[in-house]
Design a protein around this nucleic acid. Structure first.
Lengths: 198, 198
DNA sequence: TAAAAAAGCGAACGTTCGTGCTATTATTTT
DNA sequence: AAAATAATAGCACGAACGTTCGCTTTTTTA
């Protein structure tokens, strides 16, 4: 890895932390420069525009999040779904980002700001939700979950619990909300489970 | 009402719209001045600091929201709870704010920013959630809802659906999410309902 | 090791930000 | 109508913003 790419990565690492705590607009060139002991222009040269810095920040945040959602060695269907939801909860509770999930924060920050950043963000969010969709769908086809509730409806509800836990925790710093989310998710999964699968 | 108070109200009205679309930090003195055809100092004099402008904006937003949540002519308990949740959904779907619920947006914006604004916001949010708590609690004591699920747990889940609908809709502009939320809420209420009621 | 390319610095640009003054109008009150 | 008060404008400030440019240093390639 060349020196430039190394620096770029360090910059983005710091950027994800700022994005988590102060929002994606809070990722300013000056703040990064000060925090990293570099010049503004030195930072800037790596990206060419603030928008590109922001989308690159999202990309790194995505990699970091994905690294916390390992579903290796789990059988497809309900088991993998459980592993994924557990991973997501652990990722939110013991977050690699000091200010909570970058994507949930950025979503409400950019939902009304058309442009490159919003589009990029939307892509990533759709992809993340799609992963949840896929597992629920698989679990249903395998007969692990009942078929009387549409998959998108289940996606909505599970995703809602994750978002709510993240938001409430960040605002109150009370980890109790993760327990609420855990209970909610567990109750719903066992509710949706078919009888033959214990 | 004196002229000054009238102007102040006009300013705050505009401020709530900006807060909804661009966030509470996006409520800048300059933007307000331009949008209202006034001078920056003219705007500023009404509040004395940006923080006070922001908290005043939250207060007006609160009044506006409260005006959309009428539960008049409803019996306490399950009926009033239903009315309240319906009102909240309608408020989110046909929002008086162009960029979605000011409080949900401001919550993720200020959760990591200690200070007067965050404290004020937290107070309002706690109060709003408290109203939900109260109705669920009443409905349970009246025997309308089963007692095997703790009230805070139910508050968490219902609130999660409202938040998720607002967030997903603002990001995608797809009103379908409100239907998901409606179905989720209805299913849960009837699930938690005791048999003797209806 | 010399030449070429990449990385980084420093200063300046035009804007916008919140805030502080001093006037100058409007509006109340007497 | 006169006096007192409230409301707004105008101007300036220091700071932070993203961005550009030219120059120097470091790193890579040949």
């Amino acid at each position: 890895m060349t020196k430039g790419q190394q620096t770029r990565d360090t910059i983005l690492q710091t950027a994800t932390q700022i994005a988590s705590k102060d929002g994606l607009e809070g990722v300013s060139i000056g703040k990064l420069a000060e925090q990293l002991g570099m010049s503004k222009s030195g930072i800037f040269a790596h990206f060419g525009s603030k928008e590109d810095l922001q989308t690159a920040t999202l990309d790194l945040a995505w990699e970091i999040m994905a690294g916390h959602l390992s579903t290796a060695n789990t059988a497809p269907g309900l088991e993998r779904l459980r592993a994924m939801l557990n991973g997501w909860l652990l990722y939110l509770e013991h977050s690699p980002f000091q200010g909570g999930c970058v994507f949930m924060a950025a979503s409400t920050e950019f939902d009304g700001q058309p442009g490159k950043v919003r589009d990029h963000l939307l892509n990533l969010v759709v992809h993340a939700v799609g992963v949840l969709f896929e597992q629920l769908s698989t679990a249903q086809h395998l007969g692990h979950l009942r078929g009387d509730i549409p998959v998108p409806q289940m996606v909505f509800e599970l995703h809602a619990f994750l978002q709510a836990a993240n938001n409430a925790y960040q605002l109150s710093k009370d980890p109790q909300y993760f327990e609420y989310a855990r209970h909610a998710i567990e109750r719903h999964l066992s509710m949706w489970q078919t009888s033959e699968v214990l």
